[in-house]
Write a protein that binds this DNA or RNA. Sequence first.
DNA 1: GAAGGCATGTGACCAAAGTCATAGCTCTCC
DNA 2: GGAGAGCTATGACTTTGGTCACATGCCTTC
Lengths: 232, 232
Amino acid sequence: MPAAADRLAQLHRLPLFAPLDDAALAALARRAAPRAYAAGDILFHAGDACAGVHLLTAGAVRIFKLSAAGRELTLHIQAAPATVAEVPLVDGGPYPASVSAVGEVSALFLRREDFLAVCLEHPQVALAALRVFGQRLRGLVELLEAVTFGGVRQRLARLLLEQAQRSRQQGEPGDVLQVGSQQQLALELGTVREVVSRNLNRFQAEGLIRIHSRALEVLDPDGLRREAEAEL
Amino acid sequence: MPAAADRLAQLHRLPLFAPLDDAALAALARRAAPRAYAAGDILFHAGDACAGVHLLTAGAVRIFKLSAAGRELTLHIQAAPATVAEVPLVDGGPYPASVSAVGEVSALFLRREDFLAVCLEHPQVALAALRVFGQRLRGLVELLEAVTFGGVRQRLARLLLEQAQRSRQQGEPGDVLQVGSQQQLALELGTVREVVSRNLNRFQAEGLIRIHSRALEVLDPDGLRREAEAEL
DNA sequence: GAAGGCATGTGACCAAAGTCATAGCTCTCC
DNA sequence: GGAGAGCTATGACTTTGGTCACATGCCTTC
């Protein structure tokens, strides 16, 4: 398959560039540089200067903040097709958060000038970008709410429900989750392993889940949902 | 002074519409409806459906989330000239947070269709909106970091420093702050009054501030800064 | 199957934040 | 100046989360 046509199709699936016609897409495709990352690779760190956007064409990335004490907080997990780190594009500042590859990741890299030029020429792209930013903002506000008003328990329940839904979207059963290690869960939630362990066991004691090695079985989704919503 | 010309000047000061020429501004001005709010008035609540943007021309507003338990968290304090709640504009969804007037507020209300039309006609406006969104995102990420990794103590120190800076920007001395009640501070920080009281007293005991009735004197800004930065 | 490496479960402990109750303070308004 | 409202200080207590330490279990690799 010709690489150029392939790349064009990939671009077309990005929400940001969906409004573009083939000619404009082709122009973009010519300027985009392909990149590949292995699981765990860092695409960039918070504070790095930004030269352009990453256009995810396959795989997924984790957007997170690091604390000085070694804790982490996952802001978002973003699966292809999507763009990542659009913010520094428009204001020229550094990246606000770090991004790492969850699995194998293919991306196209588009330089800042090229992106801005497209925006000016095709206002629809700018509007699409605004929609993307809007989603990000909503997500962050929700997360902030959960962190401020809720406890780890609540956020953990929520995380499990999300993962269940995600795996259901991919045609999997949806009640047996392949979560990573508890350490990973802890980093996502911005807490530590022990707390995750205790809360998982508590969920199990209450009959909401069953813990297997490396996997979780959701026994009572409604119960989990009750935990997740509790007096927010 | 003719109301129309006045309104035009106000629009011109908004970051969002700075790139527009006079003709375009005049067209906007004709479509914008003036509104006024008294201190404490609610402009809208989180979850309300959105019909357009508020363009702040005078005063300041507080953007916040409410918890079911009656706690609050201030996401941002936005002073004129600025726009408020741009997010629902682009995705048509409900407002993500509530907004109330801090003091007397004058605003212009612009309907969604009118805003979108301007964006399409003047891509620079869309880019300006992207810059505004970018700032919001950066602010939220920072806040999230502070809430997750830091304590109330840290956030309080930060809040005081911010207020000191703000009052300095307005030509005031800058080391005597007219903070509201401790209750207000608590709501801004997403905590409760007692915790604020204790932390303020602790700061005083450490010689960082002096507490007067209704006002605070900053004695040791660097000490406060050290508290604010501590091992984030 | 022994050894070492992870991942996990748990108890003891500590610190921070939230809750409750109460007492004192400061202002304003008659 | 006194009454009352609202704001503030503070002690006692609970809950939650984080730290430390250590035991256990599982899996891989010689």
